[in-house]
């Protein structure tokens, strides 16, 4: 009984990691399953954020302070994961910014940010180009529309 309780306690104690994994899978699912380009980016952001949690959780030491030099504190959290994730957050923001800028440009060019509509239009473009290429060459001056 106590063994089972200890095991349950151990599982519950890792709740941070479970949340991280949940966010990771949910984010990746949104990227794959949604056709809306903005929603895809939201999923991507979620996916990246889960990694921040994955790094930060083991870096935190219970009862530890921020890593400052002070004789009153002996235990402090590992600063390295925090610094790494600060960099990763910047990278994530930059990615999101570039992604959103691309979506704005796509919306200007296509009038839509739904992936299937855009693919349908691209396919139509390809067909038009292929038709234009396979048409027998017209004599100059005659075939102008």
């Amino acid at each position: 009984m106590t063994d089972l309780l200890a095991r349950l306690g151990n599982i519950a104690g890792h709740y941070n990691l479970y949340i991280a994994i949940l966010l990771m899978v949910a984010g990746l699912y949104v990227v794959i399953a949604r056709g809306n380009m903005v929603k895809k980016l939201i999923g991507l952001s979620l996916f990246q954020s889960s990694v921040y949690l994955l790094y930060l959780t083991p870096g935190k030491i219970l009862g530890g302070t921020a890593p400052v030099v002070d004789p009153r504190f002996a235990i402090y959290s590992n600063p390295l994961p925090h610094v790494l994730i600060l960099t990763a957050i910047v990278v994530g923001i930059a990615t999101l910014a570039v992604g959103l800028a691309l979506v704005v440009r796509i919306n200007e060019a296509y009038g839509s940010i739904e992936e299937d509509e855009i693919f349908a239009r691209d396919e139509a473009t390809v067909k038009r180009e292929d038709r234009a290429a396979s048409r027998p060459p017209r004599r100059a001056g005659k075939g102008a529309r």
Partner: peptide
């Protein structure tokens, strides 16, 4: 070509997933 935008967007999604996998 306007398809360059969609190509860049798709690369961004896949590239970011790849880089995030690497970080994990």
């Amino acid at each position: 070509d306007r398809r360059a935008l969609v190509a860049a967007y798709q690369y961004l999604i896949i590239g970011t997933i790849g880089a995030t996998f690497y970080v994990i």
